[in-house]
Amino acid sequence: MKDDSTSPVKGTSLWRDAMRRLLRNRLAVFGLIVLVFISVSVIVGPAVIEATTGYTYDYIPADNELVKAMAPSLKHPMGTDEAGRDILARVLQGGRISLLVGIISTLVSLIVGVSYGAIAGFLGGRIDNLMMRIVDILYAIPYILIVVVLLAVFGGTNSPEWIKWLTKLIGAEGNQGISQILLLFFALGLVSWLTMARVVRGQILSLKNEEFVLAARASGVSNVGIIFRHLIPNALGPVIVYATLTVPSVMLAEAFLSFLGLGVQAPYASWGSLASAGIKNIAIFPWQLIFPGLTMALTLFSLNFLGDGLRDALDPQTRKF
């Protein structure tokens, strides 16, 4: 690693090398394939279902006989909920929201959390102290209150055009209900980077006195260069693992906020809200938990395999494959 770091030409081959190693990791490839499959299903699935069976995530059958929880069948591979809505359609639509929640929060956590933690850890002293105390304060402020206030201030009828535009990306009509989801993304992003910052800072503190940092400094690399070229790549293992851990935790946080009425708006669903509705009926309509739960678990597993693969692939000293 230390050798690589002083010769940026080789650095590009490091990434190609990593890619090659990643593709040789069967579990990681499996994870990647599943994630791609789920993403594609979530994007095109709802349209396909509507075309074939006429069901959408919010379609309640006109025939009263069909307005009830029905076990899985050919028409409804995942069964229906008490309103007779197709759970598959709801799982696919819920996937859009859950995946977006996961992706956005992880990106925030990676971009903000990692740089923040690295800078604090590297600079140390007063600046580190100040930056970490800000994190401490943010920990203590109840984020539910933040969400309540965000919704009250921005969640009104007159949401700006760009919010409406973004909501269309999620696949819903641009009405006011959904802008709540964006606020939710924002609020979850706001808190998701805090622990990441602490984790990274801890790593950097322990790495910054290593010889390779001294060597880099001696050869005139700037602070920014040291942090982003040398320190962060060496702390990548825990970072990737923690990032893959962030996804489930924000998905759950979303489910909890939905439970309080601060999350995704009915009739939209998320995997978390589907699972929390399903668990209540586990003893009578088990399919309502099993299918959303399995989809979510499969996604998280795949993500994790991919994360581990990435970690191993980016680690120049692990040459097991």
Partner: peptide, 26 residues
């Protein structure tokens, strides 16, 4: 063990709790 850990992470506690109740209490 990592699969078990992943399971622990991907089963939300609002699902795990009632499941445990179902098994151990009922």
């Amino acid at each position: 063990s990592m699969a078990a850990a992943m399971l622990g992470l991907s089963v939300p506690n609002f699902v795990l709790g009632p499941l445990l109740v179902l098994v151990f209490s009922f």
